[in-house]
């Protein structure tokens, strides 16, 4: 019975998570590692505890509306070269058309940083966002699953103590129905 419950829980997790994040080997090398797998029930519970009188929390609460999951692997390292291109490729290879399309991509050889933003569409509606951000000593993957309001997501940069920036380049920001 317990095994069945665990299997069902794992199945539920995989259903919301839109691609695999097999990056556990990086955690052993990282000086800091953040591993967040927040499925729908956790997001709904968190939403009940967010204070709408706080501007930051109100923004996040609005964004949580319609989300099915947030999955993040974030690693920082003390030395260069702790992660490999195959780690990044293991993520990129899963983010392929027709489900996924890359809306932003940049490579900075000077700073050794790469970033890609992908969106997932189903029936002409955005159903997921993936961010792959790598630096010489950093490796970050974000998967936000569900009906995302990209206006709110882009607006996050103007909150949580960060300076306000323009809209995401690439595709025009549009609201979901």
């Amino acid at each position: 019975m317990k095994k069945l419950a665990l299997l069902l829980a794992a199945a539920g997790l995989l259903a919301a998570q839109q691609f695999k994040l097999n990056l556990d080997h990086l955690a052993t090398k990282a000086s800091n590692a953040v591993d967040l797998s927040l499925a729908g029930p956790t997001l709904r519970l968190a939403a009940r505890f967010l204070d709408t009188s706080d501007p930051d929390e109100a923004k996040v609460k609005k964004l949580l509306n319609g989300l099915e999951g947030i999955y993040i692997r974030h690693f920082t390292f003390k030395r260069d070269g702790e992660w490999t291109q195959s780690d990044a490729e293991g993520v990129r290879v899963q983010l392929k058309a027709p489900e996924w399309s890359r809306v932003v991509g940049y490579k900075s050889t000077e700073e050794g940083e790469n970033a890609d933003i992908y969106i997932r569409t189903q029936n002409d509606k955005i159903s997921g966002v993936a961010i792959l951000y790598t630096g010489a000593r950093e490796f970050t993957v974000v998967n936000i699953s569900g009906a995302i309001d990209l206006d709110s997501l882009a607006d996050l940069s103007g909150h949580l103590g960060l300076p306000k920036l323009e809209q995401l380049p690439g595709k025009p920001i549009r609201k979901l129905d």
Binding site: L38, I70, I117, L156, H159, L162, L165
Partner: peptide, 12 residues
Amino acid sequence: AMKITAVKLNRI
């Protein structure tokens, strides 16, 4: 989670 996402979006 939102802070990590926001920081990455901001830098990108």
